[in-house]
Write a protein that binds this DNA or RNA. Structure first.
Length: 637
RNA sequence: GCCCGCGUAGCUCAGUCGGUAGAGCGCAUCCUUGGUAAGGAUGAGGUCACCGGUUCAAUUCCGGUCGUGGGCUCCA
């Protein structure tokens, strides 16, 4: 019998019998590996395990540990779910059922809604299908055959999908009586799926278009070990515990009311956090050569017509009338900032002009997308507009990158960067786009920052850099953005006087770092799970007297601490010390000072740190000194 | 905006197969004055989201409104 050889990822070669499959290759490496194998990649293409190999093929075996392996595993689980649904509800029509980042979904068109009870039944049926260990067979058919098959099966959505496909030959995957239009690859048989869980039911439009029919989507996830499913469910619980809407209420930071849907109310403790954030922001911006402005919330229609918002952004704007004239509530700060720029004649010597604005903007978001502080209808952008000469672009971008980096690091966030290039509907010439995109790119390269290019995702007026920060449980949030804008200076006829004494058009750079103060607060709440670092904590120190007779001593301590702007509260409730400690731990206050007869005599306090426990007795003055240093250093927990 | 679920005390939730309601936490008062994550007693607090309909009777059933939660291409 003749032999072939294939090349593995690490360059090593494996000798196999002629007509050997990917599975045989895995088996040759080890029994365990073959058992874990999900599918493979042959010469760059994903293939099923029963794919027949040829001499000199470069192969990689995929297991659940790789993202590609997971994707195939999830996708196969979605087919099993669809089969279960079809067996239970033969009248259900199949739409699409892809793998997603965390699991999979399948969309169905069914005459009645799925219920939580249905989920249990579907899960049971899925177990059954997995036990049957049905092979997933790949079938190649012509368009005509595929059409005929899905017509017989009354799968209207599959027929629509086929219509949009270019290929003459299509692939189907079959397991038992279930057949799906699918590119594959898939696991070898249903028995490969070890554990899975259906997570939720939701509505979803056919092809994501709100003009199309609303289908029913079932989400699920699968793993190759039960322990991994358990970990995943724990992570979901952890995220739930950190939900800023829940913590915001419990810690009395903010509230939402029917009287102003999407408009958050900030409570005293929330305002402390907010003011610290804003003060810190102003300080950093001042140090980086920014000035600060504040522009009005309501401005005349004429301004919004000129800026283009009236034509391009009207759907998201609120309007009002003053003295019979039309006004709009600002959805962005730039037109206001531009009016300030235009107030004076600028020399090239004034540039770059960095104008910061914590500007409150209102945008009409669809009611269904509102979500705590993350998606609201009014929010404060930590905006700034930089007016500069084209030559200054690169340096200014580098400056913004530095500032952003410094601010994110202060909160302990890591981040990644995306560069978005010219979109379809862009305004402005190709040259100017190229110049702008190059400036952004060169700045990133100079700064040695890795970035992902997001082709065609720029704003219509210019390319942009986006900053996505990562929180401590691995979720990422788009916050900062740097956008180059050539359109507004044009529309508003902005200019400065150059060295030659001629009028010249400045370039505008629009940027945020935190994004929205409100949203950033939400991110901070979830990242720290409400247990803020000392410098951000609304209450920094809680005073806990052992007995009522020590309250007076507590009042003296308040005076001593507030003198240094340390935020302190005294617990005067008649509880035992254990109870007071418990209450304070739940309020997530960083330090507790406990004092009774033993401390009273010598200006001592007993220090207890949140989550750490008793730190022992210390002089009040020494405690103040330590705390002030921790605040000044903005130490992270 | 659309689909599905939910809306009972300040908070978290139970309950009523239709006869106007209950717990824990919190709050108030009292007893207790206690040394590092829950001492005890008593009490106040609810038009059961809102508006209609069915009914002798609606917090409960039905319809609508508002709010809220999850989701609305990560493409066969």
């Amino acid at each position: 019998m003749s032999k072939i050889k294939v090349i593995l990822l690490d360059g090593s070669e494996v000798e196999l019998n002629k007509d050997a499959t990917l599975y045989d290759a895995a088996l040759k490496i080890s029994q365990k590996f073959a058992k874990e194998a999900i599918a493979g990649i042959v010469n760059g293409e994903k293939k099923d395990l029963n794919y027949t190999l040829k001499n000199n093929d470069r192969i990689e075996i995929l297991t659940f540990t790789s993202p590609e392996g997971k994707e195939i595993y999830y996708h196969s689980t979605s087919h099993i779910m669809a089969q279960a649904v079809k067996e239970l509800f033969p009248q259900a029509k199949l739409a699409i059922g892809p793998a997603i980042k965390d699991g999979f979904y399948y969309d169905f068109d069914l005459d009645r809604p799925f219920t939580p009870e249905d989920m249990v039944v579907i899960e049971k049926k899925m177990e059954e299908i997995i036990d049957r260990n049905l092979p997933l067979k790949r079938i190649e058919v012509s368009r005509e055959e595929a059409n005929k098959l899905f017509k017989e099966r009354k799968e209207d959505y599959k027929l629509e999908l086929i219509r949009d496909l270019q290929d003459d030959m299509l692939t189907l995957y079959q397991q038992g009586d279930y057949i799906d239009l699918c590119r594959g690859p898939h696991i070898a048989s249903t028995g490969k799926i070890k554990v899975f869980k259906l997570l939720s039911i939701a509505g979803a439009y056919w092809r994501g278009n709100e003009k199309n029919k609303m289908l029913q989507r079932i989400y699920g996830i699968s793993f190759d070990k039960k322990s991994e499913l358990d970990n995943y469910l724990i992570l979901i619980e952890e995220a739930k515990k950190r939900d800023h809407r829940k913590l915001g209420k419990e810690l009395e930071l903010f509230s939402m009311h029917d009287e102003g849907v999407g408009f958050p109310f900030f409570h005293p403790k929330g305002m402390v956090l907010r003011n610290i954030l804003e003060d810190y922001w102003k300080e950093e911006h001042y140090k980086s050569g920014y000035t600060e402005v504040k522009t009005p919330i309501i401005l005349n229609k004429s301004l919004w017509m000129k800026s283009g918002h009236w034509d391009h952004y009207k759907e998201n704007m609120y309007f009002t009338k003053i003295d019979e004239e039309d006004y709009a509530i600002k959805p962005m700060n730039c037109p206001g900032g531009i009016l300030i720029y235009k107030c004076t004649l600028h020399s090239y010597r004034d540039l770059p002009l960095r104008m910061g604005e914590l500007g409150l903007v209102h945008r009409h978001e669809l009611s269904g997308v509102l979500h705590g502080l993350f998606r609201v209808r009014c929010f404060t952008q930590d905006d700034a507009h930089i007016f500069m000469t084209p030559e200054q672009i690169k340096d200014e971008i580098k400056g913004v990158i530095d500032l952003t980096d410094r601010i994110y690091k202060t909160f302990g966030f890591s981040y990644h960067v995306e560069l978005s290039t010219k979109p379809e509907n862009a305004m402005g010439s190709d040259e100017i786009w190229e110049m702008a995109t190059n400036s952004l790119e060169e700045a990133l390269i100079d700064k040695k920052i890795n970035y992902v290019v997001n082709e065609g995702n720029g704003a219509f007026y210019g390319p942009k850099i986006d900053f996505h920060l990562k929180d401590c449980i691995g979720r990422s949030w788009q916050c900062g953005t740097i956008q180059l804008d050539f359109i507004m200076p044009e529309k508003f006829d902005l200019f400065f006087i150059n060295k030659e004494g001629d009028k010249e058009k400045p370039v505008m750079l629009h940027r945020t770092i935190l994004g929205s103060i409100e949203r950033f607060m939400g991110i901070l709440i979830e990242n720290f799970a409400g247990a803020f670092p000392l410098w951000l904590a609304p209450v920094q120190v809680k005073l806990l007297p052992i007995a009522d007779r020590h309250i007076k001593y507590g009042k003296d301590i308040i005076k001593k601490l507030t003198k240094y702007n340390i935020r302190v509260e005294l617990d005067e409730v008649n509880d035992k010390i254990g109870t007071k400690i418990r209450k304070t731990e739940l309020e997530k206050i960083p330090y507790m000072l406990i004092f009774g007869d033993k401390e009273l005599e010598e200006d001592l306090v007993s220090v207890r740190k949140r989550g750490k426990g008793d730190l022992g007795r210390i002089k009040i003055a020494k405690f103040v000194k330590n705390v002030l240093k921790e605040i000044k250093d903005k130490k992270l927990p």
